[in-house]
Simulated scan of single mutants.
Amino acid sequence: METLLASPILSTVTTVIVAIVAFKMAFFTIKKVVVNLVLGFVAYYAAVHMFNIPMDVGFWLWALTALFGPIPMIVVAIWHAL
């Protein structure tokens, strides 16, 4: 006698649901990182070309920008402007 937890149909349905949720989470994360990097580049471009703030940023700042959006880039621009 087969139990409900060992049912191949239930196992397949659970696998499909988990795969859909994982794909949606991964897509949201990738999309968020790309949006953060684009907004960070816009902030960098504005600081360098519009406000004439000399900024030499490294990989660490781009990594922070990927996580937190344009906020680290704006803070560094203000820091360099002072």
Rank of each mutant, 00 (worst) to 15 (best):
F27W: 10
M50I: 12
Y45L: 07
W79A: 04
T15Y: 02
S7N: 10
K32E: 08
T15L: 06
A66Q: 02
L64I: 09
L37M: 13
V76L: 13
S11H: 05
A26K: 10
L64P: 00
W79F: 08
H49S: 08
T65S: 09
V16L: 15
V16W: 14
V35I: 13
F41H: 08
L37E: 04
I30H: 07
I53R: 01
G58P: 02
M55E: 07
E2V: 03
L39E: 06
M1W: 12
A46P: 01
P8V: 13
W79T: 07
V35S: 13
V18I: 06
M25F: 12
W60A: 14
V48F: 01
A46D: 09
Y44I: 00
H80Q: 04
I53N: 01
F59I: 15
I71M: 04
V42S: 08
A22H: 03
L5Y: 13
H80S: 08
F28D: 11
L64T: 05
V35P: 01
W60M: 14
V38D: 06
P8E: 15
A26L: 11
I20W: 12
T14A: 09
A77M: 02
P8W: 15
A26P: 03
W79V: 05
L67P: 00
M25Y: 11
N36Q: 09
A22I: 03
H80E: 13
A63Q: 12
V35N: 11
F68N: 10
V76M: 09
A43I: 01
L10A: 14
L4V: 03
V57P: 00
P72E: 01
A77Y: 00
M73S: 03
L64W: 13
T12S: 11
S11C: 14
L4Y: 09
I17S: 11
